[in-house]
Structures are given as structure tokens and as C-alpha cells.
Amino acid sequence: MTGSRSKSIVIWAFVVTALLMLSAPTIVVLGASFTAGNIITFPPEGLSLKWYGAIAQASDLRQAFFRSLIVATICTLISIPVGTLAGIALSKYRVRFARTIQIYLLLPFTIPLIGSGIGMMLVFGEMGALGKLWPVGIATCVINLPFMIWAVTASASNLSPDLELAAANCGAPPLQRFLYITLPAVLPGIITGSLLMFILALNEFLVSLLLVDARSVTLPVQIYNSIRSIITPDLAAISVVFIACAGVAIALLDRLVGLDIFLKSK
């Protein structure tokens, strides 16, 4: 009795500590963004929204933010068809080299981003496309695509092969089977993957840094550039905007498909 009680106290202590450590940076940056002073501090000196006003006025930040949105949109739009088809193919058919492909899906966790970033810099440099936004969109798509495929495969593996046979038996030709049966079944995975891809592309720093020039900086790069000069509370404010974007994505996800897809998927 007491044994299980003290055990649960220990577990709770761990959980609370972990939550504190995970949320501390967010709380700090959130607090710092509301400061009335001119330097970034925590706890903030007084409360004001003036730094939010400042970032709304700062055209370079705003433009960088829009560029990041464009990059994230390009990345998501490419990843939806590619990731969906690849995910379905991987889970449905005995694909040749399936093991090799699975290893590729692990690569983003094993190959340093700087490696793939430099590779892509060379490719796009060769094409003379450095400094444009679409290469950044493609690059973020390439490095993050495994997440999309993973999300689609997770929901496609719930799809029983009998369902498509049943649809065929009901008179549905292959395209209709795909549209009416397969696609709706993997839709939660597609939504999850898309939001994930969007957020990852929005936040992507290292690869963007290698592919952009002064005219095409994305928001994370812009923030990085600003940090190197003077650190002002507007950076905290813009970080909060970032966090808000991610929050919106998670709220959307919860509304559309429920968050249990993350909890259940392996």
C-alpha cells in the first residue's frame, strides 16, 4: 500500500519536473515579450504590448514572416500528394526495397541537417536557384517528408485490405476505390502530416540559412541575424507569434482528427 503510494509520489515528481523543464523556455519567452523595458529580461519590467506593436511595424520581420509562410505552403503542397501516395504504397503493397525505404525514413534523425543542407545548396547552386523561395520549400519538404509518410502509414495500416475488395465487389473501379475508400481512411494521417510539415517548414532554420540570400531571408534566419546585433524584446514577441502558430496547428489538429493519432501511432 505505502509502497505503491510512494511510487506514485516519485512518478508525479518526475512528471512535474519534466513539465516544468519543457515549458520553462516558453514561459520565459512569453513573459519577456510583454516587457515595457527596452532589454529582454525575465521577469519582465512592467507589462505592455509595445513590442508586438513594434514587430507589426517592422517591415523586414513582417516580410520574413510572409516568406516563411510561402516556404511552408510550398513544402506542404508538395508533401501532400507525394507523402500520401508514398505512405499508402508503403503500407499497402509489398514494395521492393521496403527495408531500404524504412531506413531512409529514419535518416532525418541520423544524418545531420548540415549535411543534407550543404548537399541541397550545391544542387540548387548548380541550378542558379539560390536566393529564390521555392528551393527552400522543396528542401524543407525533402528533409521533413518522412514525417508526412510516417503519419500517412500510421493511419493506412488501420485500413483493412478487405475494404477495397468490398468496394470492388460493390462495383467501384480502381480510381473510385481510391477516392471513396482509401483516401477517407488515411485522411486523418494526411491532415496530421500536413500540419506537421507546415510547422516544421515554418520553423526550419539551418537549411534555410544555407539556401537564402539577403533578399530572401525567412523568419528564423531573420531572427538569427537580429540576435547577432542587439537582442531586443521584439525577438521574444516574434517567438511568441511562432509558438502561437504551432498552437493553432495543434488546436486545428485536435478539432479535425483528434490528437490520439499521436498517442496511438507507433
Binding site: 483493412s160 478487405d162 475488395l165 470492388a168 465487389n169 460493390c170 462495383g171 481512411a185
Partner: peptide, 19 residues
């Protein structure tokens, strides 16, 4: 092909469309 055979089938696991 199966979709042109005009055969109705009840599957062992029913295979009703869940959505």
C-alpha cells in the same frame, strides 16, 4: 475484373466502410 461481375459478397469481417 471484380467490379464488373455483379456479385454481392458478405465478408468474414464484414468490411463495412467505417466512415
Amino acid at each position: 475484373p471484380p467490379h464488373r461481375r455483379a456479385i454481392g459478397m458478405v465478408f468474414q469481417k464484414l468490411a463495412l466502410f467505417p466512415h
